[in-house]
Amino acid sequence: MDQPALTGRAATMRETAYAKINLALHIRRQREDGYHELETLFAFIDAGDEMAAEPADADCLHVMGEFATGLSDPFGNIVAKALNSLPHGKDWAVTLEKRLPVAAGLGGGSADAGAVFRMVERAHGLPDDWHERAAKLGADVPACVLSEACIGRGTGTELEPVVNDLAGTAVLLVNPRIPLATGPVFKGWDGIDRGPMPSGDLRTIAREGRNDLEPSAIQLVPQIADVIAALQASGAWLARMSGSGATCFALYDTGEARDAAADALPPAWWRLAGNLR
């Protein structure tokens, strides 16, 4: 995995794998197939993992970056699967700079796969059944291909448009640097349907919504509660856990307020400052 920085590669294409957050995540029931019926509000940050691709004699993947070691099998991961699932002409050498924590509720792997889909779209166009191919890779992948605010239903693959009145909003992502697998968090959900996600624009749904997985995640990683409390006390108008955790997000009225909040956090916590797309 010891690869040169992306800035030193003569790549034909570059793409950011935008970090995903769930502004709201309502779990409605567990289905007979074992999956959960949910309603979620997807949003994306203008930063994330970075990917580059250039022509090669054979498809290959190189992984680098702060969180590269968190991928137990980088050569069989979702990026390689995404590339293999799409016709893309000549073989590609893909370099992935892993900037987002792994198992963090940010859809990192799904975002990486979404970036592959967008690069293929730019180079060759996507097949008509791209949504189905994306959904086979993971429930978050179709939304990550679009990387724009939307509503997800079913397992998260049934996408609906939403009025995005929060584009450009200052956002801070914070993770206590503790990986948290999705399966145990869903397993710990108490099974209570607390009602549907509200309707309206992005701000309304975000303010009035909730994340039904927060209690389960906090049982597994109590530090999540510390992160949320710190963000709530930092001047944010909304602070909540994203997805199945352990990353939390906070939304601010100004970039200055966001940056001041980031500077005041414990230095051991991972943080990423950006804006909503």
Rank of each mutant, 00 (worst) to 15 (best):
Ala250Asp: 08
Thr247Cys: 13
Ala230Gln: 12
Ala246Arg: 11
Arg240His: 05
Ala246Lys: 05
Ala225Pro: 11
Pro196Lys: 13
Ala257Glu: 14
Gln219Ile: 12
Pro198Met: 04
Gly209Asn: 04
Ala262Met: 15
Gly183Trp: 07
Glu208Arg: 15
Trp237Ser: 13
Ala233Ile: 03
Gly200Gln: 05
Asp259Gln: 15
Thr204Cys: 05
Thr254Asn: 01
Gly195Asn: 11
Ser216Ala: 15
Asp193Asn: 12
Ala260Ile: 13
Met241Asn: 09
Arg240Pro: 05
Arg194Pro: 09
Ala181Lys: 12
Pro184Gln: 03
Leu251Met: 13
Cys248Ser: 10
Arg240Ile: 06
Gln223His: 08
Pro196Glu: 02
Ala230Ile: 09
Leu213Val: 07
Gly188His: 12
Thr204Val: 09
Gly255His: 10
Lys187Asn: 12
Leu213Glu: 03
Gly243Val: 06
Met197Gln: 10
Ala206Val: 03
Asn175Ala: 02
Val185Lys: 02
Ala257Trp: 10
Gly191Ser: 08
Asp259Ala: 15
Gly235Lys: 01
Ala257Pro: 11
Ala262Pro: 01
Ala239Ser: 14
Glu256Met: 10
Asp226Leu: 11
Gly243Ser: 06
Asp190Ala: 04
Met241His: 09
Ala261Val: 03
Arg240Gln: 06
Gly209Leu: 09
Pro222Trp: 03
Gly245Trp: 05
Asp193Ile: 00
Ala229Thr: 14
Ala246Pro: 15
Ala233Trp: 00
Arg177Ala: 11
Thr254Lys: 00
